[in-house]
Design a protein around this nucleic acid. Structure first.
Lengths: 344, 344
DNA sequence: CTGAAAGCGCTAACAA
DNA sequence: TTGTTAGCGCTTTCAG
């Protein structure tokens, strides 16, 4: 016996049927094309029609099906890619992106390179027909990013390539970050400087900081300034810190990001080295943990919020038609706290 | 003069034309339906055909258009919603979700309630035709979440409603978190306990912890145990901590999450109160900052990674057909460090 | 100013 | 086992 021809339940059955543009058209007693025009703010719609349609939209609680939209035009969805979530600095960037998008029709979703690679995430976002991408702290080669930029509007944060034309970028002046640090430490009377840097490179951010660190130290006549690189895991940082403290015996350490600096303080403390009397520590990003009394960490503020804001602004501009590349660089500032206070 | 009929450039022009299922079919010399079947692992495809198609897919670098997929069936995209990114605990949850999804065809994107409300994010995700949602630390009412659960497969983390049938949940036993804390503090010899809790409720997580705290204190005969609530901003936490320290004068404070505990340590230190001799501090979530020597914060570990892993697993099960609700509760454990060490 | 009609790339029922 | 076909909900010409 054949089953009777019922409305096929399929998988999607559980979802109560969506309100579509046709339902709105019917309710408003207009053609569905008219509804589409109102939705897109297209040219040539009378006020009366617009009002009727908007009333029906509200009444029925209609929201456009983004997937369907994506098949023809824009989705008004942007993708943002972060390397991880552990660094609280990223939440500042996100706040900036949110602020920039607040009064626009755009939404942003995040992809995190935690168990996915950046290329996989980027491909997924393209497959979802997202309108543009903000790529933060990428470690991918320039050639790859350039190709992505040809396929979809893109802005990088932390990957400064002033000559590139296929995407925009927003950056902190990372060399300047290191210069400010060295100047500050020198002024406080510290003389033997080590920079605890990152093993894997992030765009050209890390190189820039190392470059600024070494050149400024040289200019100020601080002999023996040295760069040591370590991976991002706490274990490796601990080992590196211990070795620096035992072997290089600097009186100041500049760390590429705050949590590394906090770990170095931790190691120094467990080794009985007093901060800042015997050892100054400076971090980078000025995250909320710097302010705690027990850390009181001098740090470089690169205003993640501003970076995110500008990135989102540039991206929307690109999506809406700009074709010449823009590359923004913002100036960091040093926030002095106890961890680099002494040594008059 | 009319413009000549060129291939219309439109907005999407910049994007080099996508490889579609038709291109693959042509290259493999089969019908495009055959390609779709291979893609979906559908029943009734010969090995020869499958191989030919897979070769063409690889050769052409084809990836399915998720938007088009979303119009008919599944997208294999999940949405995860976090209240914010500042709490490093969330990155543990994310790691768990990533681990669970690693060997599946599913991808997860994040929405953060920073400038968007949860309902707006949820609606966007539904509009993108995502297959399911993981909602973490929501403050929305049960009635609303229940309605969402009827429309789309959903799992909540941090919203334990054992009776609800429209979605699954994964939770830490939050009452037990507080009980463990009180037991530990009592054993260490601390007697006057205050819990520094959150003003706005997160699911029922906060209530549960408060309940466990008060009942366990009573059971152990610790008179005068008290709950104080404060908003999540550093400023408010500072004010509250100062007031507690000045007025309530407890010898131990249990904080609902680690960064609050760190702020309390900071305030205590600036007030000249020594931790743990005069004052014990216990946090919650056992985030990486607890381990730093300068904090050495006793904390409750609720294994965010496990919570995320289970949530993703349940969600995939639901998407693939399970209809009876599942509600998981995991047991926390206390990690003792210096901040609650003394008071023999 | 409004509506009719043609697809976008895919899934899944159905026919061969 | 394979191919044909009918949409999914929307944008965007193009005619009226």
């Amino acid at each position: 016996m054949k089953s009777r021809p019922v409305a096929k339940p399929r998988r999607g059955e559980r979802k109560s049927k969506r309100v579509t543009i046709l339902d709105v058209a019917e309710d408003a007693e207009v053609s569905f094309a008219a509804v589409s025009k109102v939705l897109r703010n297209a040219y040539g719609v009378s006020d009366g029609l617009r009002e009727k349609v908007n009333a029906s939209i509200k009444k029925l609680g209609y929201t456009p099906n983004t997937a369907a939209r994506g098949m023809r035009g824009r989705t008004f969805v942007l993708g943002t890619i972060f390397p991880d979530l552990r660094n609280p600095f990223f939440s500042d960037i996100l706040a900036g992106i949110g602020a920039a998008l607040e009064r626009t029709p755009y939404q942003s979703f995040l992809g995190i390179e935690v168990h996915s690679t950046a290329p996989a995430l980027i491909q997924s976002m393209i497959d979802m027909q997202m309108d543009g991408l903000i790529v933060v702290g990428s470690t991918e080669p320039e050639s790859y990013l350039s190709k992505v930029g040809e396929r979809i509007p893109m802005v990088t944060v932390g990957y400064h390539l002033p000559q590139i034309t296929t995407f925009d970028s927003v950056n902190n002046n990372d060399a300047q970050s290191a210069r400010l640090t060295v100047q500050h430490l020198a002024k406080q009377g510290y003389k033997k400087l080590v920079m605890l840097s990152l093993e894997t490179t992030i765009g050209n951010v890390i190189e820039e900081r190392e470059r600024g660190f070494l050149s400024q130290a040289e200019e100020l006549g601080l002999a023996g300034a040295k760069v040591v690189r370590a991976p991002q895991t706490l274990r490796d940082i601990q080992v590196a810190a211990r070795r620096i403290l035992d072997e290089d015996r600097p009186d100041a350490i500049f760390c590429w990001t705050d949590f590394v600096a906090l770990e170095v303080i931790s190691v120094a403390e467990s080794l009985g080295r007093s901060v800042p009397e015997e050892l100054a520590i400076v971090g980078h990003d000025n995250t909320m943990y710097c302010d705690f009394e027990q850390n009181s960490l001098t740090s470089i503020d690169q205003s993640g919020e501003q970076l995110g804001l500008q990135a989102a602004r540039l991206l929307v501009e690109r999506i809406e038609g700009r074709t010449e590349a823009q590359h923004l660089v913002s100036q960091p500032r040093l926030v002095a706290r106890n961890s680099s206070a002494h040594r008059g």
